[in-house]
């Protein structure tokens, strides 16, 4: 589990909508590129690559709640174009099974797609300079760190912008929230009230939007890191262990390929 499948309902529409647009744009590019090749060869290959990703995700590793992904390795083996399409397919399947949301397929594809694309591009640049095994280990580690940062970035930024992205949140049900909050978290409710106010301003005056948006963002980010410290720390630790395991499995598999079918890594 080197990444998190973002579920439905946690991101505002603007985030997952844009996620879909960007992911869709790259998907169309990738499909255009794939179309030019021999589809009778590439379609089964695409099926194999996505099926392997799905299967490796469902193998239990023992008592720890991790599962491996092998996205970086699959990217190295299949190339960025086919790998990216495979990632989209895998995410769509997973969303059907409640493993990551249907609205967030776009964002999840972009994050996992980073692993495939960066992994394969970096490996083809590195393999001429150093040996295959260290190359793939380094590539896997760096790629997973990048994608993890991207994922945490999406989570953090989207949550900090949360209050201002969904207008109805403020207008229709703001009072209800406040009533709940007053009894339990007095000081929080106050800050909420302020935010609420800012939010309305933000909606009504388009001119101030940029300025207010940035200020809120900074404010909310510190808010998140302060209150969510323990939660985020634990998550980071889990992610790091996940990355370590994934690198290990990738090295073992690469060694296996070098023995059995070295042309796979060329």
């Amino acid at each position: 589990m080197s990444h998190i499948h973002i579920p439905d309902g946690v991101l505002p529409l603007s985030w997952w909508g844009i996620g879909y647009l960007i992911a869709g744009f790259f998907l169309i590019l990738a499909i255009r590129k794939l179309e030019k090749e021999d589809l009778r060869k590439k379609i089964p290959y695409l099926g194999v690559v996505s099926a392997i990703m799905l299967i490796t995700m469902s193998i239990p590793l023992g008592i720890v709640p991790f599962h491996i992904n092998l996205t970086v390795l699959m990217g190295v083996l299949s190339g960025p174009v086919l790998g990216y399409i495979a990632v989209f397919i895998v995410n769509l399947f997973l969303s059907f099974l409640g493993h990551g949301g249907i609205t967030t397929v776009g964002l999840n594809t972009l994050i996992l797609g980073l692993e495939v694309v960066i992994g394969s591009l970096m490996f083809s640049a590195l393999k001429r300079r150093i040996k295959a095994i260290p190359a793939i280990a380094v590539v896997t580690a760096i790629t997973l760190i990048i994608s993890t940062c991207a994922m945490l970035g999406v989570v953090g930024l989207s949550q900090s912008g949360w209050e201002y992205a969904l207008p109805h949140d403020h207008h229709e049900h703001g009072a209800e929230h406040l009533a709940d909050d007053h009894s339990e978290h007095d000081h929080l409710a106050n800050s909420h009230l302020e935010e609420e106010h800012l939010g309305e301003d933000h909606l009504h005056s388009a001119n101030d939007e940029t300025f207010l948006g940035l200020a809120d963002l900074r404010d909310s980010l510190s808010h998140v890191s302060f209150l969510g410290m323990t939660g985020l720390g634990a998550v980071l630790l889990i992610l790091l262990i996940g990355i370590g395991l994934e690198v290990l499995v990738t090295i073992l598999l690469a060694r296996f390929f070098l023995k059995v079918k070295p042309e796979l890594l060329k």
């Binding site: 989570v155 339990e184 929080l188 998140v224 209150l227």
Partner: peptide, 15 residues
Amino acid sequence: FSLLFAFIRFSVSLS
């Protein structure tokens, strides 16, 4: 998986 996001929102209110 939504727990991570929920953690952040819990800081606003339980609901």
